[in-house]
């Protein structure tokens, strides 16, 4: 029973991270119908920036709280700057091009960013500092659910709530929904579509960076390649829940997290990634529109 509980909570933690990254995919897809392949790389850059900044700040003798706050903040700023720039370079010139073009461009961007970090930094795994403090009241549950896990789940829930408020009740959220429904129409009613697309990339990148920092301090090490697998898995989560649907991405993240957690716990840990991919293939065969997605007829 305890083993089961451990896997359940482990899956919850994993699922939260997948959900955070999947949101970025789903939002971008909802607006410009593009799989932003470079999204996983944004997540990796977020984690790297946090690692670099926290090391620098530690060396200059800042105290613990300011290190956590400052390095996370800088990481968020930088990853959103990267998300913004990637969109401007690789996707914006391709509006209206055939569907395959932006996708290939996105793959290129992803390969480019990976190797950029590899060349400018290192190919080795770097130890990530434990940014998240240990809480005393969690001591008794340490063996099933640590402080880091708690922080991850709580942060994810908070981010989800904020995002829902942003999309449902603010002006920019309404503009985003309008753009997602019909770009031309949105333009006609005076929405700056280019700006909305940029904002979407920035929001998605911020969430990816939050996910990156959380998972890096949970696992304790990062390298340039972490974004690739995480990106594919998060995409799986987004498809699982129905791409374009925000609650779907969250649900998909949790379903994927639990699937992986239980499958590695009860079947075999060698095939951790295979389960995720197999789940993706199965979902696409039997329910391509995802759990919460609406099936749409194809336009000619």
């Amino acid at each position: 029973m305890e083993y089961f509980l451990q896997l359940l909570l482990g899956g919850l933690t994993r699922g939260s991270i997948y959900a955070l990254i999947a949101l970025g995919y789903t939002m971008v897809y909802g607006i410009i119908e593009l799989i932003n392949f470079a999204h996983g790389e944004i997540y990796m850059i977020g984690a790297f920036t946090a690692l670099i900044m926290s090391s620098v700040l530690t060396l200059y003798g800042f105290n613990e709280v300011s290190i956590i706050v400052l390095s996370s903040l800088i990481a968020l700023i930088y990853s959103s700057a990267y998300g913004f720039t990637v969109e401007k370079i690789a996707y914006k010139p391709l509006r209206g091009a055939p569907r395959l073009s932006p996708l290939i461009s996105a793959i290129g961007m992803s390969i480019f960013l990976q190797n950029y970090v590899l060349l400018a930094q290192t190919s080795d795994f770097l130890p990530f500092p434990t940014l998240i403090p240990e809480f005393n009241f969690m001591k008794n549950y340490e063996h099933v659910f640590g402080s880091t896990e708690l922080v991850i789940v709580v942060t994810t829930v908070l981010v989800m709530i904020l995002l829902t408020i942003l999309i449902k009740f603010t002006k920019i959220g309404r503009a985003m929904r309008a753009t997602a429904q019909d770009k031309k129409m949105a333009m006609l009613v005076g929405i700056n579509v280019n700006k909305i697309i940029s904002v979407t990339f920035i929001i998605g990148s911020v969430m990816a960076a939050i996910g990156g920092i959380l998972i890096a301090s949970h696992i304790g090490q990062i390298n340039f390649y972490i974004g690739f697998i995480a990106g594919i898995k998060a995409f799986t989560a987004a498809v699982l829940g129905g791409i374009g649907s925000i609650p779907g991405a969250v649900l998909g993240g949790f379903v994927l997290g639990w699937t992986e957690s239980f499958a590695t716990g009860y079947v075999s840990s060698d095939y951790e990634d295979v389960f995720a991919f197999a789940l993706l293939v199965l979902i696409l065969i039997f329910r391509p529109e995802g759990i919460l997605g609406k099936s749409s007829s194809q336009k000619v």
Partner: peptide, 28 residues
């Protein structure tokens, strides 16, 4: 067979997953 119904971008990811599955199976 499984990807017949999929459009461009889904297809890309599924084929990517398929490639990785084959490699992971060979590795493990």
């Amino acid at each position: 067979f499984p990807v017949l119904r999929l459009r461009g971008d889904y297809l890309a990811i599924v084929t990517l997953g398929f490639g990785e599955i084959i490699r992971l199976v060979l590795e493990n």
